[in-house]
Computed example of a mutant assay.
Amino acid sequence: MAIDTDWALGELKHFIGLASRPRVKTAFRTKGDDAELIASAQVVEQILDRVFPRWHHRVVGLGSLSDYWARHREAAQRAVVTLEREAEIREKLGDNAPQISASTFHPWAWEGASSLWQSGHFREAVTAAARKINAEAQNKLERRDLSEIKLFQEALSANAPAVGRPRLRIVPDDGSDTYKSTQRGVMAFAEGCFAAIRNPNSHEDSLPELPEAEALEQLAALSLLARWIDSAAVESTS
């Protein structure tokens, strides 16, 4: 779901007001007290996660604890500018292409990856997403004897289900060429995701960190696989 821009701007600006620091003689204090700031920050931090990716490391991760709310305020100010002027900036800089947000990915992909992603561990985040999708597919099929490539090869087989071997049907099995090509295509896609994305990334200790843009593309591929698997019908002998 797209972000509610008006609501987000209201929350950000409210926090910025609370975190501003008027001069009182020679000391500084925020306009809002700690309780007000903490309550507002609980919402604002979630907005920042959506609007200003890795904000905690780019702004709040720097400086001393005494500047904690000031650094939060700076992140919120940057997010306000992003929301208010993003379309203008993209148009003026000549990049008005569609964009994707990881927060809109299928939950199996993003929820498995989000905490690692926010800390900049992109390769590990992609690996975690693949593991989550594998686990959810096992749960859906009630199978623990197979995993990853072998699991999807068998689950997406065009063969009829057998005892202990249910199938996943991406579209209804009406015997048409569309059904056959869709089933075959998703099986090949799943094999590719685990052979070319999950398996190489599992060796993160011996590989350089993935560039963020490349990791996002990989996560998008896994999200698409997750949507197909989640929406597929289970066909069994029972």
Results as ranks from 00 to 15, higher is better:
Leu219Phe: 00
Thr82Tyr: 07
Ala226Leu: 04
Leu37Asp: 00
Val126Arg: 00
Glu235Asp: 13
Ala87Leu: 13
Glu212Met: 04
Ile197Val: 03
Ala27Pro: 05
His203Gly: 13
Arg23Tyr: 10
Asp95Met: 03
Leu37Asn: 00
Arg71Val: 05
Ile133Asp: 01
Ala195Gly: 06
Arg123Glu: 02
Val80Glu: 09
Ser176His: 01
Pro107Arg: 02
Ala233Gly: 10
Glu74Gly: 08
Ser114Ala: 15
Met1Gln: 03
Glu214Asn: 13
His14Asp: 15
Ile89Gln: 12
Arg198Met: 07
Arg71Asn: 12
Ala2Asp: 13
Thr5Asn: 04
His57Leu: 11
Gly175Glu: 09
Arg143Thr: 02
Ser114Phe: 07
Leu207Val: 06
Thr127Val: 11
Leu146Phe: 01
Gly164Met: 01
Ala8Gly: 05
Ser119His: 09
Ile149Asn: 14
Met1Asp: 07
Gly112His: 04
Asn199Trp: 11
Arg143Phe: 00
Leu219Ile: 03
Ile16Leu: 02
Ser40Val: 05
Arg167Asn: 09
Ala102Ser: 14
Gln118His: 12
Val24Ile: 15
Glu154Ser: 15
Arg58Pro: 09
Thr127Asp: 09
Glu45Trp: 07
Tyr68Pro: 02
Gly120Glu: 05
Arg71Trp: 08
Leu116Gly: 04
Ser40Phe: 03
Leu216Met: 07
Val60Leu: 15
Asp95Trp: 05
Pro98Ser: 02
Ala76Glu: 06
His56Gln: 14
Gly61Gln: 04
Ala19Tyr: 09
Pro211Ala: 04
Ala155Phe: 00
Ala233Val: 15
Ala109Ile: 00
Leu65Lys: 13
Asp174Gln: 04
Ser119Arg: 14
Ala102Arg: 15
Gly61Trp: 06
Ala233Arg: 14
Pro208Gly: 08
Ala76Trp: 04
Gln99Val: 11
Asn199Tyr: 11
Asn199Glu: 13
Trp108Leu: 00
Asn159Leu: 05
Leu37Lys: 01
Ala135Gln: 13
Ala232Leu: 00
Ser114Thr: 06
Asp34Ile: 09
Ser176Val: 01
Ser103Thr: 06
Ala70Asp: 14
Glu209Gln: 12
Arg85Glu: 13
Gln153Glu: 15
